[in-house]
C-alpha cells in the first residue's frame, strides 16, 4: 500500500523564485521551504561557490544548523552549514506541481491519456515496462 494522495495546494509553487535571506530567521525559513520543495535548488555560498542539488534533510537546531543535499551529477551528499548560504534559488522543476488527485480529476480525458502515455513511454525507454 504505497499510495498517498497528496492534496497539497497546486498554486504557489516556488519554482523560479530566489530567496536572499537577510537574517538567520529568514534563512531558516528559506531552508524549510527548500526542504519541502520537490525539485532541485541552487545554493550560492559565501565562498562564491554555487551548488545545484536536492535538499533532502536539514538540522535547524544546535550550535551549527546545517542542511544535507544530493548535488546534481555527483554520487555522494554534501553537508552545508546554514551560515554559509547566501541565497537559495528554486531552479529545478517542481516535480510535485500538478500531480495532486484533484488536478488529475480536473484534467480533460485527453490530457490524462497523453500524460499517462508519456509516463509509459519513459518507463519503456528505461526498460521498466
Amino acid at each position: 500500500m504505497t499510495d498517498s494522495k497528496n492534496h497539497s495546494p497546486e498554486a504557489g509553487s516556488l519554482e523560479g523564485r530566489v530567496f536572499r535571506p537577510r537574517n538567520p530567521k529568514e534563512l531558516a525559513e528559506a531552508v524549510e521551504q527548500a526542504f519541502d520543495y520537490r525539485g532541485d535548488v541552487t545554493l550560492k555560498l559565501r565562498t562564491g561557490e554555487t551548488i545545484e542539488g536536492y535538499i533532502f534533510n536539514r538540522t535547524p537546531t544546535g550550535s551549527r544548523p546545517c542542511l544535507q543535499l544530493f548535488p546534481r551529477g555527483e554520487l555522494g551528499e554534501r553537508i552545508i552549514a546554514y551560515e554559509d548560504v547566501v541565497s537559495i534559488a528554486f531552479t529545478g522543476k517542481d516535480t510535485a506541481s500538478g500531480k495532486s488527485w484533484e488536478a488529475w480529476v480536473a484534467k480533460k480525458e485527453s490530457q490524462r491519456r497523453a500524460e499517462s502515455a508519456q509516463a509509459a513511454a519513459e518507463a519503456k525507454s528505461r526498460g521498466h515496462l
Binding site: 499510495d3 498517498s4 516535480t95 490524462r112 521498466h128
Partner: peptide, 22 residues
C-alpha cells in the same frame, strides 16, 4: 523511488531524475 507507473496523486515518486536514479 522510481516507478514504471505514474499514479494520479501518488506522493511518493515526485523527485528530480538524479534522485530517482538513486
Amino acid at each position: 523511488f522510481r516507478c514504471n507507473l505514474a499514479c494520479a496523486g501518488c506522493g511518493k515518486i515526485q523527485y528530480p531524475e538524479h534522485v530517482l536514479d538513486k
